[in-house]
Amino acid sequence: MATSSTVLLPGDSISPSALPKPQNRKKHLTLGPGLRHMPPNTIASTIAGLLVTDSKKNAAWVEYNSGRYLPAAGDLVIATVNTSGGENFNCLITPNTPYASLPHLAFEGATRKTRPQLSSNSLVYCRVINPGKDSFPELTCVDPSTGKSEGLGPLKGGMVFKISLGMARRLLAGKKGGVTLLEGLSEKLGFEVAIGRNGVLWVDGGSVKATLAVGRAVQEVDEQALGEKGQKKLVEKVLRGL
């Protein structure tokens, strides 16, 4: 993955030299968020951000960190159950958007008789299977190939914290995201987290203090763009505070 220094404005066309050089000729060029193809062979940006290319995957996209979350297939999100219909739960991924549907049977081990009971306004950690551009978004809490939950399902207790979309991506990206905070904290502190690409972080640290400390620390790393050293310092500060 190469982060170029090309700052794009909507309507800028991408010069062929800036596009990834495919190592494998058979692989088609994939355009990610913020890029569109205008036939015959113009590629232009649609949003303001930084051009990022990945020559291994032969992909290019625009990286940005502002605006509302738009569901994309495969994304992990933390949704809020609004109402329960006959066959599915109506969930909100972000406020004031159309309902996303989460079937009653899309939970591990759920059958017609043992369907989960979720009250309104409870939280679910789920995966987007259909972003719903042409209809409504669809969600699931099981891996369709194995039928296992893989950590997805209703979130009980804990607290949610709002984080930027970029922070959510970084947290899910592992080492590449450059967030060492959670690892640092976990050496001394036991807690559970769930990261939603929709900019929601769920934390359960067992106690109010621990949960708040973890949640607020992540928010601080996000807002102040702390680097590795800064995060280490923050870990020490948080652990001392507890």
Binding site: L9, A48, N65, G178, A225, L226, G227
Partner: peptide, 19 residues
């Protein structure tokens, strides 16, 4: 306008260069 967007991107990307 381009300079405004450049500043926006710099703010968004500053974590990459933060110590």
């Amino acid at each position: 306008l381009r300079s405004v967007v450049k500043r926006k991107v710099e703010v968004e990307q500053r974590w990459r260069i933060a110590p």
